[in-house]
Design a protein around this nucleic acid. Structure first.
Lengths: 125, 125
DNA sequence: CAAATACATCAACGTTTCTTGATGAGGAGA
DNA sequence: TCTCCTCATCAAGAAACGTTGATGTATTTG
């Protein structure tokens, strides 16, 4: 039911209210070049850490840090096999991010309805 | 020509290479709750700072800071009129962000081709 | 002109994020 | 078992980020 766009206890409907906290967290995870490079590599399929390490020329602990961030954001998952960790994309989460951006890019109804927001002041008339 | 997905001097084609630096910058701008709230308000149309200030209950200088970040990311523009600044969305930039997320969510060709990346080591066979 | 309004900018500070190098845990092979 | 390999985690420091309160600037109003 929860789709990353509205909190579990959201108001009835309205014009697609965004889960700001969740969105901020997700975009935060996407806001680093190294992490984006990882995601881009994973587009092509599962990769073990050592492959990412070589391809991105990143120190092991640095990469591990970023993989953890991505994992905690739900953007990737890992599968352990022997002594290797294989990381892969979680397409659903990227889908949620996609919807979030679209939601922002989509205008609401028509012009705004001025629902009694401004109380004092004489701004913008 | 430059669409935010490939650097100006990008390689011929390939499977939609992402501009990592630009993408990271853009997502960074989107990674704050207050800024997302601003963008969400602007979905509804142009707003002056004082309106945003009231609606978001944010200190003036705080809001000003975030508006600047959004503006530098190209997500909003401002229009001065008398002593008011009216901010509005730049839909194109949100469109670019949208494409970036889609690019990440889209698999490349088929399985990976193993183009001689790993030289030493015995990982993942 | 003086006062008030709308907003930007700045410096200082606390917080978060990122990097680095060291240590540790578990698996695989000699 | 001893050693090597892959990877995670930790602590310390550096850098980036966000908040606050003060000050500055332009504009309008009295």
């Amino acid at each position: 039911m929860y789709n990353g766009l509205m909190p579990p206890n959201a108001a009835p409907a309205g014009p697609a209210k965004l889960d700001l906290v969740g969105a901020a967290r997700l975009f935060q995870a996407l806001s680093d070049e190294t992490r984006l490079a990882v995601l881009e590599m994973l587009r092509d399929g599962e990769r073990c850490v050592c492959e990412l390490q070589d391809a991105l020329d990143a120190a092991q602990s640095r990469l591990s840090f970023h993989l953890r961030v991505l994992k905690e954001a739900g953007l990737v998952r890992d599968r352990k096999e022997g002594r290797w960790s294989h990381y892969s994309l979680v397409p659903d989460t990227l889908g949620v991010a996609h919807d979030m951006v679209r939601a922002l890019a989509t205008e609401t109804s028509g012009r705004r309805g001025r629902k009694g927001l401004r109380v004092l002041g004489d701004c913008c008339d």
